[in-house]
Amino acid sequence: MSRNEGTFDRTLRVIAGLALIALAATGTVGWWGYLGVVPLLTGIAGYCPLYTLLGINTCSRKR
């Protein structure tokens, strides 16, 4: 499993994931806000299974 997300992409995913989880925890949005765990984990890992299926790679490193 090699990385397929670049730094900017990973940063946006972590921020969006944390924001969604925070909104769900405060009751601002419904339960679906906890789905922010998905972008949070993919941002931390640097790997997105959907990107692999679609052939997308935003990582600047060549492996």
Rank of each mutant, 00 (worst) to 15 (best):
R3K: 14
N4F: 07
N4S: 07
E5L: 12
T7G: 07
D9Y: 08
D9N: 04
T11H: 06
L12A: 08
L12T: 05
R13P: 01
V14T: 11
V14A: 07
V14R: 04
I15K: 01
I15P: 04
G17Q: 00
G17A: 01
G17L: 00
L20W: 08
A22N: 10
A22V: 14
L23V: 08
A24S: 09
A24W: 02
A24L: 03
T26G: 12
T26N: 12
T28G: 09
T28F: 09
V29H: 06
V29K: 02
G30D: 05
G30M: 03
G30N: 06
W32S: 13
W32I: 12
W32Q: 09
Y34Q: 05
L35E: 01
G36C: 03
V37A: 15
V38S: 08
L40A: 05
T42S: 06
G43E: 00
I44K: 10
A45K: 13
A45F: 14
G46L: 02
Y47N: 10
Y47Q: 08
C48S: 05
C48G: 02
C48D: 00
P49Q: 05
P49N: 03
L50A: 14
Y51L: 00
Y51T: 06
Y51E: 04
Y51Q: 01
T52K: 11
T52W: 09
L53N: 12
L53K: 06
L53W: 08
L53I: 02
L54M: 09
L54N: 11
N57Q: 11
N57A: 09
T58K: 04
C59F: 12
C59T: 10
C59R: 11
C59H: 14
S60C: 11
R61V: 13
R63A: 15
R63T: 15
R63W: 12
